[in-house]
Simulated assay, not measured.
Amino acid sequence: MALLTLAEAKAQLNLTGDGDDVELQDYIDSVTAVVEEYCGPIEPRAVTERHDAESGRSVIVLRTTPVLSLTSVTPVLTGGVSHPVAGLDLDPDTGAVRRLDGGRFRGLLLFTVQAGRAGVPPVPPTVNLASRMLVQHLWRTQRPSRSGGLAGGGDDYTVGEPIPGFGYAVPNRVLELLAPYRLPPGVA
């Protein structure tokens, strides 16, 4: 589920050999988690969440957003009530699920959804570029240049103030590229 390929990362870093491929793949895999923490799932995938509605709830808010579709709502315990998805309303951006009949959800329920973002290609070009830039930033902070400083110079990858939740690991320009895909406030 990486947001970029090894070949794309190598091109961004101007690497031609394969001596660093295993380590670079670790960076690629790690960057996906960072980007999705900020934006939510990018590539579509099935996600199942357990929600406790024992006391009855009119709205269940999914923890994973954005959501492409609601696949099923089934009880965890035998004898519980299933909810046909045709009778439910889903807000794909906030993950809020309501019953169309105005009733309440009750019991322990499993919500299965298709999370991610619609589109072709599945990874928007801006997200791919931000991911490549983040790999480049993290890679360069670990690779001293021949002159003794960090490769790539300081100003190009300097992170000013720490970003809440991200510290100094994500440059502001990466966050600026991801801004159109950022999760709404209060959704995480």
Rank of each mutant, 00 (worst) to 15 (best):
A2S: 15
L3H: 06
T5E: 11
T5C: 12
T5S: 15
L6Q: 08
A7F: 07
K10N: 06
K10L: 00
A11F: 03
A11K: 09
Q12Y: 04
Q12A: 12
Q12K: 14
L13E: 04
N14E: 14
T16Y: 11
G19V: 08
G19I: 10
D20G: 00
D21V: 12
V22A: 14
E23W: 01
L24K: 02
Q25F: 02
Q25Y: 03
D26M: 03
Y27L: 04
D29W: 01
D29C: 00
D29L: 10
D29P: 00
D29I: 09
S30D: 12
S30I: 02
S30H: 10
T32V: 09
A33I: 02
A33P: 00
V34N: 01
V34R: 02
E37M: 01
G40R: 05
R50L: 15
D52L: 01
S58I: 01
S58T: 11
V59Q: 08
L62S: 01
T65S: 06
V67L: 11
V67A: 02
S72W: 03
T74M: 07
P75S: 10
L77N: 06
T78E: 11
S82V: 08
L88E: 10
D89C: 01
L90P: 06
P92H: 12
D93S: 06
D93A: 07
G95N: 09
A96V: 04
L100M: 14
G102T: 03
G107D: 04
L109M: 11
T112L: 04
Q114V: 13
Q114E: 11
Q114M: 09
G116P: 01
R117Q: 10
R117T: 09
G119R: 08
P121I: 03
N128P: 00
L129P: 00
A130Q: 00
A130R: 08
M133N: 11
V135T: 10
Q136L: 12
Q136Y: 03
H137Y: 09
L138P: 00
R140V: 01
S145M: 03
R146A: 10
L150Y: 11
A151R: 04
G152C: 08
G152Q: 03
G154C: 02
D156G: 01
D156M: 10
Y157L: 12
Y157F: 14
T158W: 07
V159R: 08
E161W: 04
A169M: 07
V170M: 07
P171I: 05
R173H: 14
R173V: 09
V174Y: 09
L175G: 00
E176R: 13
R182K: 15
G186D: 10
G186Y: 06
V187F: 04
A188R: 15
A188Y: 15
